[in-house]
Design a binder for these strands. Structure first.
Lengths: 177, 177
DNA sequence: CTCGCCGGTTCATTGAACGAACTAACTGAT
DNA sequence: ATCAGTTAGTTCGTTCAATGAACCGGCGAG
């Protein structure tokens, strides 16, 4: 972040966390990575983020070990960005924010996406666990995103990522775009 | 936030959440509120935040219903800022970020604060629950902050809030400063 | 060889953060 | 009554980051 002082001076684990993932756009990039977005152009189209900011964020996340950049094609050279274990462990925090938003910030609107325990088909509860399986915390690999009641409609987006997510999709698996 | 476009355009609950609590400093203000900080000057001294930014954040949080401003003294007129129910519900997200930071961002350093289930005295696990009580999610009212191994030392702060937190303290209870 | 795509970088403009200084309301001590 | 001190801000000039449009280089296809 490199502001004059940065709040890293706090020597507090929350402050250090926010230095890494608390900047504008960063959490949305990570959310998309959980959805299976891996390519620069897909992040760009789905987030409507300025190119320069996306480049900066991907570099920061890569340098701090939250994401990993890897070559998946030699010619033409193409890289993809995927979450590392460190990054995948952000799921519980991300999900908690997501659920809070669904409860408190939807102005009468209904839910756009539902999160389902793939093993049993039940929707996750707010704590990130599965009630019917009595699992306290379902890991992201076992979760599917399903389109919710508000997925279609006047506010729907039409980028490749949004279209790919109109079908149920396993978290962290690459999206077909 | 009122940037040109804001990412509220995403019509996604995470984006809306971050519009409210994703700005620089905001989460640290909320964390301090959980610690029991209520007065302008205490936020200021503990966070080393510019006064103008603190004013803006407290206004935004108040307007969005995350915190409430209330008169606790008539003369001289003094207001305090306390979390509403909406704000208190951010605990699980905040705690998840905190634990992630403790695991991944402490560069060999040790923990500054520990979070203890007041009813049984056991430290909370990373998911926010209490292992020994088999409670899946301990609410903040039942949690105490204890100074951790790194509370003292060369990096220790000397503001009133940090001093008050050198003793165990129940979350959300006002700090004696 | 040229066209277009992908994954960036560069640049001018705008907006936000920073920190120091200033203000307003009040209290308590001299 | 005056004066210093505390609290809770606002104001303002400077610095830094976000935005969006334009530009660029590698490459493959036609």
């Amino acid at each position: 972040m490199a502001l004059k002082k940065g709040y890293a001076a706090q020597d507090c684990s929350l402050a250090r966390t926010l230095e890494l993932v608390g900047e504008r756009w960063t959490m949305l990039v990570i959310r998309d990575a959980f959805y299976g977005v891996r390519r620069y152009s897909d992040f760009l189209a789905h987030l409507d983020i300025p190119r320069a900011v996306l480049s900066t964020r991907l570099r920061t996340l890569t340098e701090s070990g939250v994401m990993e950049r890897r070559r998946y094609e030699q010619s033409p050279p193409r890289d993809e960005y995927v979450l590392t274990e460190k990054g995948r462990r952000l799921w519980s925090a991300l999900f908690a924010l997501l659920m809070w938003g669904q409860e408190f910030t939807t102005g009468g609107a209904t839910v756009r996406r539902r999160y389902v325990h793939a093993a049993c088909g039940h929707e996750l509860e707010a704590g990130g666990g599965c009630q019917s399986c009595e699992r306290p915390a379902v890991p992201p690999e076992d979760i599917e995103v399903h389109p919710g009641p508000a997925a279609e409609g006047p506010t729907a987006r039409h980028d490749p990522v949004s279209r790919a997510l109109s079908k149920p999709h396993r978290l962290l698996q690459p999206l077909e775009t």
